[in-house]
Simulated assay, not measured.
Amino acid sequence: MIEKIKKYVELKNQQKQISEELSLLRDDIISFMDKIDETEMDFESYLVKVVPQERRLYDDDKLYKSLPDDSLWRLMSKADTSKINGLLKLNIIKEDLLKDAYQVKKISNLQINKK
């Protein structure tokens, strides 16, 4: 069993290192694409795309004050974007109620496909 534990720890460390390296490479690629003002380019046999996205960052206090019913807050207990989006899609709450309860964070999603 100790060998399996050692192997697990070794692999988790490798996973952490790989994740850190991927993050640095991702940032470098996105930075390069931003610098040349391109969102899609061919590099030899690779197609690189930078897809802009927006994420909402909810403020728990503002969100609580925005909701029309305390029972809705109890369903969430904290700002959970996927639950909030579900409530919006089901028309349980309206978009205009939440307008001051979040900030929009712009992110870039990197997609690289081999041709």
Rank of each mutant, 00 (worst) to 15 (best):
K35F: 01
Y102S: 04
S31L: 10
N113D: 13
P68F: 10
P52S: 02
R55L: 05
M33D: 01
R74W: 15
L25H: 06
S31E: 09
L110D: 03
M33G: 00
I5T: 03
Q53T: 13
E20G: 05
V50D: 06
D37E: 07
M41G: 03
V9E: 13
L110W: 02
S19N: 12
I112P: 15
A101T: 15
S108G: 11
Y8L: 07
N91I: 03
L90E: 12
D27F: 07
K105I: 10
T81P: 03
S82L: 07
L110Q: 04
L47Y: 04
P68R: 09
Y8S: 11
D34I: 01
E10T: 14
I18K: 11
K49Q: 15
S31M: 07
W73I: 04
I93R: 12
I36C: 00
K114I: 12
D60F: 00
S31W: 06
D34N: 14
D69N: 13
L97W: 11
D42F: 15
D60E: 06
P68W: 12
T81G: 09
I5W: 02
D80Y: 02
S77M: 14
E40R: 08
M41K: 03
Q17N: 13
S31A: 09
M33Q: 00
K6Q: 14
K12W: 03
K35N: 10
K115D: 07
